[in-house]
Write a protein that binds this DNA or RNA. Structure first.
Lengths: 222, 222
DNA sequence: AAATGACTGTCGCATATGCAACAGGCAATA
DNA sequence: TATTGCCTGTTGCATATGCGACAGTCATTT
């Protein structure tokens, strides 16, 4: 992938939104960014290192996973093209579990020193302000989605979790219907309950006429 | 409270950490910050307005609460001296519930236009970089604590929630013991389960010798 | 065609958990 | 001293939920 394509790809990343190609390449230069290729299964980044870097996936796909002390892997997050990852972004490994970003589809990644974002760079890039604002809005939207999930999880029954989740979904779409962003199985994961128990609850909610669920379409009645 | 005291108080706020008093007052001037007094029960800020502001509590105390459609109030967060609040920081009101910051101890609050933080200001304050970095680290630490809570809540049994929470607490203190930051009652709230059920579980965990809990001291054996 | 794998849907069973209720301790306050 | 409010600790009961198992659909691959 040549320089031009890389920069073009980065314009589509939330981190560089609103910044022209010319300025992006200037920033890459003056931030001393590094590029690396990864193939499936490679570890893109571990969270034990102390070098604070921000990674942006230019091409390909990766996932953030936790490996706990007895080897169970949990996927915490999917990281697609344009998405970024790094220490700054939420996750820390407190429990001593291993956190790692692992490549899923062969990927090209750019690593940018973390303090480049928050400091004015020596060479004075014009659009540095925009970059900072983008960074702020990315992190705060991540915080928002986390607090949304906490809100859902704070309900004590499966039914209330579902209703809460559906209400949020509907509110976002602005109607009384919306489409699930994932399968019912992973909805159970999101909600942190047993899948079969969720299906059972869903079935009784349907029979009571409170909600309708068809494929990934959710309708809330009343 | 006179100008000097205000600025002195702000030096103790995470948002202004590492910035000298002289520069803080310069920033307050060039950001067009507004000061307001509140007494107990006053609504400091509603989250329906579109004027994006960051509030910092100089003196006093407030709490962030949600009022849902049938009038139930839930305290989402305590906001103490030096703490800040605002749209940018996590919470949005998607479900149509009302979100508001309510004064708990008579307070003095400074409101700073949100874009002052992320934009370079016209008059070029020296320590603007530091301010931005502080802002980033505040938000990302909020995101971290949220994802920590999600991790705890993602356990399906009370016992596992407790063990997870205790493990994190111990890891933070670096030993196999730590002290709870709040009462057992509010621990049950944090964990989102019934208090009596939690006490029961705690009791059986004690009797099995897995943990020891005395007052707010938690010890994990093995 | 056959096989594989991911997702949906349902059921039975044991039990963990929510809920309501009560009692005692402790600190602050009148 | 009496009172009030908050926190801890425990119990009985009904049931919601986790868990395991199985079957059916559908898309993809061999």
């Amino acid at each position: 992938m040549d320089k031009g394509n890389i920069v073009a790809a980065l314009t589509r990343s939330p981190l560089f939104e609103g910044i022209e190609e010319s300025e992006i390449s200037a920033m890459l230069k003056c931030s001393d960014a590094k590029f690396k290729d990864f193939s499936v299964g490679d570890t893109v980044c571990r969270f034990d290192s102390d070098k604070q870097c921000i990674g942006v996936i230019i091409k390909g796909e990766a996932e953030l996973e936790r490996i706990d002390y007895d080897g169970n892997r949990t996927v915490l997050e999917m990281i697609g093209e344009g998405d970024m990852f790094g220490q700054t972004l939420a996750f820390t490994n407190l429990t001593g579990d291993m956190l790692a970003v692992v490549c899923r589809k062969s990927a090209l990644v750019v690593f940018i020193p973390a303090d480049f974002v928050s400091c004015r760079c020596a060479h004075y890039c014009n659009k540095h302000n925009v970059l900072v604002r983008n960074m702020l809005s990315i992190i705060s939207s991540k915080a928002r989605s986390l607090s949304e999930r906490v809100e859902v999880l704070s309900n004590r029954s499966i039914r209330d979790k579902l209703l809460n989740y559906f209400a949020i979904g509907c509110a976002k779409s602005g109607g009384n219907t919306f489409t699930l962003p994932f399968s019912l199985s992973t909805l159970a994961d999101y909600i942190c309950c047993d899948r079969s128990a969720m299906m059972r609850e869903l079935a009784s909610m349907k029979s009571e006429g409170i909600v309708g669920v068809d494929k990934r379409e959710v309708v809330m009645r009343r």
